[in-house]
Simulated scan of single mutants.
Amino acid sequence: MLTLSLYTNYWYAHNVTTETPNPLALDQQVCFALAIASRSVIACYKPLLEPLGLTHPKYLVMLALWESEPRRVKELAETLQLDPGTLSPLLKRLEAKGYVRRERDPHDERALAVVLTERGRALRTDAEAIPPAIVERLGIDVDELMELHRRLTDLIAAASR
């Protein structure tokens, strides 16, 4: 609640008008701005991902696997901050496209691991064009985007406390 109080105090200090301030004004809510920003940015990815046969959630799974594989399903879910029940259908769809394979972890037969197929590894080359295309579409300097990323990461950490 301390964060909410700080936000409310900030809001009151910066929105002094002759009218009574409205702490519930939609356009003043951080959650609203984040929701709109998220949908808008993800929409920029859609035309770039469609030719690869990926949705944004599938793209995130592939990014995690291009970083490191094989990965246990549980580890992948933690990395993506997804519930395993949400991740499972994504993995099934990626497997149907021939990008990944789910198999028993050789180090622990009880665990399921996800590995990239050759087709999934080859897709990485096409995907390398996506980050610069997003920067171009957004029209924001890379340094500004990296600062925004840092601030959002701080926000995520604060919200997770």
Rank of each mutant, 00 (worst) to 15 (best):
P57Q: 04
L63S: 06
E19D: 06
A159I: 07
N22D: 14
T17G: 07
C31I: 13
A111N: 13
I156L: 11
L87V: 05
R119A: 14
D143W: 14
A96Q: 07
L138V: 01
A35R: 01
E50A: 13
L123E: 04
T55F: 01
V61D: 06
E136K: 09
S160F: 13
I130C: 06
P132M: 06
V73R: 09
L116S: 03
V135G: 01
I140M: 14
D27I: 11
A159L: 04
L2H: 11
T8Y: 07
A158I: 02
E19R: 01
K92P: 01
E50K: 12
K74C: 08
E118S: 07
H107T: 11
G53A: 13
N15Y: 12
L90T: 10
S5L: 10
M1E: 11
R119S: 09
V16P: 02
L52M: 04
T117F: 12
G139M: 08
P47Q: 09
S68E: 07
A159P: 02
D108V: 03
V41N: 12
V135R: 04
K58M: 15
Q29N: 15
T153F: 08
S68H: 01
A133I: 09
E69C: 04
S5Y: 04
R124G: 05
C44A: 05
P23W: 02
P47A: 08
V30D: 12
K46V: 02
L76E: 00
V142D: 03
P106V: 02
L91M: 05
P84V: 10
A64I: 03
L34S: 15
T153A: 14
K97E: 11
Y12V: 02
N15T: 04
R101P: 00
T86C: 08
H149Q: 13
V73N: 12
L24G: 08
G53W: 09
E103L: 11
P51V: 09
Y10Q: 04
L63G: 06
L145Q: 07
I140H: 08
E109F: 02
E136Y: 14
F32V: 11
E50L: 12
I140V: 15
E19P: 03
I130N: 09
S88M: 03
L54V: 01
L76A: 02
A133F: 07
S68F: 00
P132K: 13
G120N: 05
S40I: 13
K97R: 04
L6K: 14
T125L: 01
E19M: 03
C44Q: 06
K97W: 05
P106S: 08
L24E: 14
M1D: 09
L82I: 14
E50T: 12
L80F: 10
D108C: 06
A96H: 08
L116M: 10
P84M: 13
G85Q: 15
P23R: 03
W11N: 05
D27T: 12
P57S: 08
L94Y: 06
S5K: 11
V135S: 01
V30G: 04
D83H: 05
S40Q: 15
A122H: 12
I156M: 08
A64Y: 03
P131C: 12
T3K: 12
D143S: 14
L80W: 06
R137F: 04
D141E: 15
I134A: 01
L4I: 10
M146G: 07
Y7N: 09
V16N: 07
Q29F: 03
D143T: 15
R102V: 05
G120L: 00
E95H: 05
W11G: 03
A158W: 07
L24S: 14
V114F: 07
Y12R: 00
R119V: 11
V135H: 00
R101V: 02
V115H: 00
